[in-house]
């Protein structure tokens, strides 16, 4: 399928999903679906750098929170409209990805991973000490009373925005995967030196990948303050984002854009159910155990099984 066809299809599906969801009376559906979609974006974004390029990012929460807190800042400073927040947060997180990448991607891959671990704590400390955006106490974000497009509640708007952003993230991920850039990234993942000697501008591609990946993670966070209506640093920087955005692609499969989606839908839904029925601490434990189990026993994830099965049939 051509990328343009795929994009048209993805956005058409997104619009159809949004329209169909209007028939659902239950508000819980919207808030649960919002969370799962948010994880799809995070997992897809992580996979662009992690799965396609082979660089582990432990700082998903930092990028997510960058998006969230840039929205808080715009809310406080300008009462900016939602679209402006989304665009600004995405750009800010992309810039952050570029900066961290520039500092560390010239070295061995593990230094990038360690730096991203550090990044989350530095930014967390920074936000905790920044009173303008609420500091450690957090900040209240009041949802606007006027809701555009004749939607009944603000959560419907956030949900619709999330559906569209998810479609965008998938279109971008797939476009990268099937393009020359995607092949270059795969070459880097397999053998960086050999890639460089085959003409692949490795540093530039890694920076590109880190930037896009960071930007999409930030985008997922931009609507988060409105979603919670109250934001505090420990919510925005929750380790759950970091571990989920790694676990989902690893469980689903890292070689294509489908894997993270499968992983996110599966793990996201399980967590929604466990959160309601048992407790949120248990669902984090489940994610951790699944992560370790898959990474040791089924390193290619669910899509790995599918590929193996397909190859056998051929």
């Amino acid at each position: 399928m051509k990328n343009r066809t795929f994009a048209a299809l993805a956005f058409a599906t997104a619009v159809a999903v949004i329209a169909a969801s209007r028939l659902i009376p239950n508000d819980y559906f919207f808030s649960a679906a919002y969370t799962v979609l948010q994880f799809i974006i995070l997992a897809t974004a992580w996979n662009i750098l992690g799965g396609y390029t082979g660089y582990v990012n432990f700082g998903s929460a930092a990028f997510f929170a960058t998006g969230a807190y840039s929205s808080v800042f715009l809310y406080k400073a300008l009462h900016a409209p939602l679209v402006v927040m989304i665009v600004t947060g995405t750009l800010a997180a992309g810039l952050l990805g570029l900066a961290v990448g520039y500092l560390t991607l010239r070295m061995r891959g593990v230094f990038f991973a360690i730096a991203t671990l550090a990044l989350a704590v530095v930014l967390y400390t920074f936000v905790v000490n920044w009173d303008y955006v609420g500091g450690a106490r957090g900040a209240y974000i009041i949802q606007p009373r006027v809701i555009p497009f004749g939607l009944p509640r603000y959560i419907h708007l956030l949900y619709s925005a999330m559906v569209l952003m998810t479609a965008l993230a998938l279109v971008i991920a797939r476009a990268i995967e099937t393009s020359t850039i995607g092949r270059g990234l795969a070459a880097i993942r397999d053998d960086e030196l050999a890639a460089e000697c085959a003409g692949v501008p490795t540093l530039r591609l890694k920076l590109f990948s880190a930037t896009v990946s960071g930007a999409l993670m930030g985008m997922a966070g931009t609507t988060f303050p409105y979603y919670l209506a109250y934001i505090e640093p420990s919510a925005a920087f929750s380790l759950s984002y970091a571990v989920n955005s790694i676990a989902m692609p690893l469980i689903g499969g890292m070689m294509s854009w489908v894997g993270p989606v499968i992983g996110a839908v599966l793990l996201g839904s399980v967590q929604q159910i466990v959160q309601v029925t048992i407790s949120s601490a248990w669902n984090l434990l489940i994610v951790g155990v699944l992560l370790v189990a898959f990474v040791t026993l089924a390193p290619n994830g669910i899509m790995g099984w599918v590929d193996a099965w397909r190859r056998k049939r051929r």
């Binding site: 092949r183 993942r189 397999d190 053998d191 085959a198 003409g199 501008p201 070689m255």
Partner: peptide, 21 residues
Amino acid sequence: PRPFVSMSVLDNLCVPLEYAA
């Protein structure tokens, strides 16, 4: 030899063809 192990033999050659040739 340092092949790109996750790619097919054909795709291995596409990398330099696309990026260098």
